[in-house]
Design a protein around this nucleic acid. Structure first.
Length: 197
DNA sequence: CAGTACCA
DNA sequence: TCTA
């Protein structure tokens, strides 16, 4: 499925694969707890996040950037093999991802329209894995204010932002909370793999 | 502006 | 859905 240049692979992970990845995510979160990032303007984001890999994405009053450590000083755990396998399957490049951002969407959480532009080389794709509740994804062009397309992302779906879509504005408008029983307390996990350099 | 309140 |  093509979404303004973004490629959506529906049902790429089966239920068993999803459960394995969720268990790996639990291992990561046990080491580097989820936190509510704060934007540069001082607002708390509704999603909670943490990271694994060489670098993790961090936001606070200082701005957006990649860091080698969790805000609590712990270094990020390695990216689990089962997650890196998804990158290998869809990224179409031999480079290993530097970062896996782990976003958790609870009831009512959303993500405003934004570009992923904190990386040093936009020729590498961004690979996104959805787990748990369905989420309404929206993507536009490389400038704000243009036409957008929407699609529901379900558990096990994989989205690839590359080429013209690599710098496209995108976001999550809302969840269908409790639409999936993958996670005990519902909600959505989104994993995004990136080469940061 | 990885935000949200507010209005047409 | 758009504006600020």
């Amino acid at each position: 499925m093509d979404l303004g240049g973004a490629k959506l692979f529906k049902h790429m992970l089966d239920r068993n694969q999803q459960e394995v990845v969720v268990n790996r995510v639990r291992d990561v979160v046990a080491q580097v707890p989820l936190f509510h990032p704060v934007t540069a303007s001082g607002r708390r984001m509704s999603v909670r996040m943490t990271s694994c890999g060489r670098l993790g994405w961090v936001s606070d009053r200082q701005g957006y950037r990649y860091e080698t450590h969790h805000p609590n000083g712990t270094s990020w755990p390695k990216i689990p093999d089962e997650i890196q396998d998804v990158w290998k399957q869809v990224s179409d490049c031999d480079v290993v991802p530097d970062s896996c951002l782990l976003n958790f969407y609870g009831e009512g959480a959303k993500m405003g329209m934004h570009q992923d532009r904190d990386e040093g080389d936009f020729s590498f794709p961004v690979v996104s894995i959805s787990l748990g509740d369905d989420a309404l994804f929206r993507i536009g062009g490389t400038a704000r204010g243009g036409k957008t397309q929407s699609a529901w992302l379900g558990s096990g779906d994989v989205l690839v932002l590359k080429g013209a879509a690599r710098l496209a504005y995108h976001g999550i408008d809302r969840l269908r909370f409790r639409s999936s029983d993958l996670l005990k307390d519902h909600g959505r996990i989104n994993l995004t793999l990136r080469v940061v350099r």
